[in-house]
Simulated scan of single mutants.
Amino acid sequence: MSNVTTNRATSAALTVLRGVNKDLGVVQQQVTSGLRVETASDDPTYWSMATTMRSDQSSLSTITDALGLGGSKVDTASTAMDTVVNIVTQIQAKLVSAKEPGTDKDAVNADIQQLKDQLTSVTQSASFSGENWLYNTNSQADTQKSIISNFTRGSGGQVNLVSIDYDSSQTLMIDTQDPSRGLLTKNIDASTLGTSDGSSTARNYYLLAADGGTPPADGTEISISSSTTDAELTDMINVTNSLLTSVTSANSTLGLLKSRIDDQSDYVSKLGDGIKDSVGSLVDTNMEEAAVRQSALQTAQQMGIQSLSIANTMANKVLILLQAK
């Protein structure tokens, strides 16, 4: 039975239309934002998981920056070490040439001194972001370097940072405060490296004295003159060869560190991409599915409007019949 005051057909059509409009609004918002789960009310579990993972992704981005900074420091030190190896090699060659009879040792020494000055200049300029791993002027040398490389999340949600540690004492070439800490400024006992062809007054040699620094005690700087004996030259050559081995080894450790940083940067980048994909699978809108659903709801909306119109028309006809009576 029809009722003019309460039209059940109209109410039903209106209820259906409201539901369709609500669902359509949700789908349209998902399409616009690109997110299926945008707020906690959409899906508390997925929203919480996605929020935590986004935080991890942000942390990984910061770690990538830290690795980049650390890599730049290593690159700077490694580039300087390449030059140091080259210069020490040249000094050794100069000393060897000085053993040739008739060689002007004073002229050779002038070349050696220029190479030493270049060593000082190279090590002093090997600074990046306020750190110099080759040259120290502080009373306490900070040789423990750390580069943040990753983080772990514990079962309780706590975050623990992971670092790549490096002992830069092996690349410290010049120390103005304590020459024994610098590879190029410390004393080396020539008697432990080889047998000279005669007795030398001094058996401890160091390559150079740091600018403004105190030379090591009981040692002799590697420097030659016309009075330098073959025995002393042999000691100097042996010491220089030992230094060359040490600086080459130090440079190799920097290369290994750089390789480790590069590998870690690549891993962190891939890990960040993986987290991004995982977040997307949790909360992103499936645009193909949403487009189909949106089209279907728009059709249902049109049908609902038509149904409501038909229901209203029927109510008007009943009203006309009642007025005619």
Rank of each mutant, 00 (worst) to 15 (best):
A126I: 07
S163G: 05
G102Q: 07
T152A: 09
T123F: 02
P179W: 05
M173R: 03
F151D: 04
D167F: 10
D178Q: 06
D178Y: 04
T185P: 05
K145M: 01
F151R: 07
D165P: 10
D142V: 09
K186Q: 09
D117Y: 12
G102V: 05
L172Y: 13
T192N: 11
Y135M: 10
Q158D: 15
S125I: 02
T192R: 11
F151W: 04
V159A: 09
P215R: 05
Q158P: 08
I174Y: 07
I188A: 01
N136C: 13
Q170K: 15
Q113S: 09
K145W: 00
I148R: 11
T192M: 08
P101V: 08
A107F: 14
I164C: 05
S191W: 10
T103I: 08
E100W: 01
D165Q: 12
A98V: 04
D211R: 03
N187I: 07
F151L: 06
G156L: 12
S163W: 08
D175S: 11
S191G: 09
S168L: 15
L172G: 14
A98G: 08
D178E: 08
Q177C: 02
T192A: 12
K116N: 14
T103E: 06
K116E: 13
S199F: 03
A107N: 13
E131G: 00
S180N: 14
L193D: 00
K145H: 01
G157E: 04
T103F: 03
K116S: 13
D117R: 13
S149V: 00
V159S: 10
Q118K: 07
S169E: 06
A110I: 11
S191T: 09
G182S: 14
L193V: 02
K145P: 00
G157W: 06
Q124T: 15
S163F: 09
Q114P: 15
G102L: 08
D117I: 12
L161S: 12
K99W: 06
D142F: 05
Q177W: 03
G194P: 03
Q118E: 06
E131K: 02
L184N: 06
R153S: 13
I147P: 03
Y166H: 08
L134G: 02
A190D: 02
N138Q: 10
T214W: 03
W133P: 04
T120D: 01
Y166P: 01
R153Q: 12
R203C: 01
I112Y: 09
D117H: 12
S127R: 06
L161D: 13
Q158Y: 14
A202F: 13
R181Q: 00
S155E: 08
G157I: 09
S125K: 05
N109F: 12
P215Y: 05
A98T: 08
L172M: 15
G213V: 02
I112S: 07
K105N: 05
G182W: 13
A217S: 15
G182Q: 12
A98I: 05
A107P: 13
S121M: 15
N136L: 13
T143I: 06
I164Y: 10
I188Q: 02
D178T: 07
N109R: 11
G198S: 14
F151Y: 10
S139M: 00
F128Y: 01
N187V: 07
N150E: 08
S191Y: 08
K186D: 01
S200K: 07
S125F: 02
S149T: 01
K99P: 09
N132P: 00
I164M: 10
S200L: 03
D189R: 04
L134I: 03
G212A: 00
R153C: 11
D165R: 11
T176M: 02
N109E: 13
R181C: 00
M173E: 04
